[in-house]
Amino acid sequence: MAPLLKVENLRIELATRAGVAPVIDNLNLELAHGESISFVGESGCGKSMTALAIMGLLPEGIGRVASGSIQFDGEELTTASPRRLRQIRGNEISMIFQEPMTSLNPVYTVGEQIAEVLRAHQGLGQKAAWAQAIELLDAVQIPNPKSRVEAYPFQMSGGQRQRVMIAIALACTPKILIADEPTTALDVTVQAQIFDLLRDLRAQTGTSIIMITHDMGAVAEMSERMIVMYAGRKAEEGPVDQVITHARHPYTSGLISCVPHIMANLTEERHDLTEVPGIVPGLSEFGQDLCLFAPRCPRASDKCLSARPPDVPFGSARSSACWHAEDL
């Protein structure tokens, strides 16, 4: 089957005070029907920008698609009209964000906000929309949905607000749900509830999910495949378990080994954490014809500074953009 989403040679430029820079630099990716993938990487690597580009929500006057294509279900999005993009956002691709409080309107009840989406995008009448809002609150496991539908966002906990956001995102049974760090602001126990909910909904509705996260554990729990991003480029791609057990890019290895992962049978032994020195470069350094990870990379050689490494395939499902990927 053709992929549901196909991003080819995508280049997104941002115009900043320092000049124009490619915040997304020749990105290729695919998402299959019903599949869940994760974008991983430190902040500033372009994960959210990729999501916003797919949604047609690049910051106005600052960001633009410079070249490449985004095909959704066979339809080209980079040239679609604003009206068509709005339709797609309402009905086919939805997004949830990190801080649910800022995305909800504080002066309307959650019921009004869900019903509004249903009226606008599914053309439901007042009564039908309200009834369905209650059903959606029930689907995202808000207790007593009949009375909670009248609650204002501030009367809910952080976890409940994120459930409401998910309810709104699901109101139109989207084909793709993009979740940008959906649980970063939440406690682990609540995160576990939200992950469970997303997994159940995916199993029931067949929605494809794009998870954006910096937590490898979350990637492993939520997705089959992952894309590691660094400085606007794809560093590595592949099935989650394969990439975690044998990373083919030094950045991926660094991301995995610098984190103190919780261990099942803890021993007294403790080592220093592996450090990835330095930080992600600023936008003005993106786009150079070299490996942008080189200043932080333990394996960097002269070659790494001479040209940008191409995506080297490993089998049909994996690739790594590293000059020394074969040796890793």
Binding site: V188, T189, Q191, A192, Q193, F195, D196, D215, M216, G217, A218, V219, A220, E221, M222, D241, I244, I256, H261, I262, A264
Partner: peptide, 20 residues
């Protein structure tokens, strides 16, 4: 709390009895 932590270790994930 401990069972809620997402794990990178596939064996851990399989054995985990998640207590929601």
């Amino acid at each position: 709390l401990l069972s809620a932590v997402p794990s990178v270790d596939p064996r851990l994930r399989e054995n985990a009895r998640r207590i929601l």
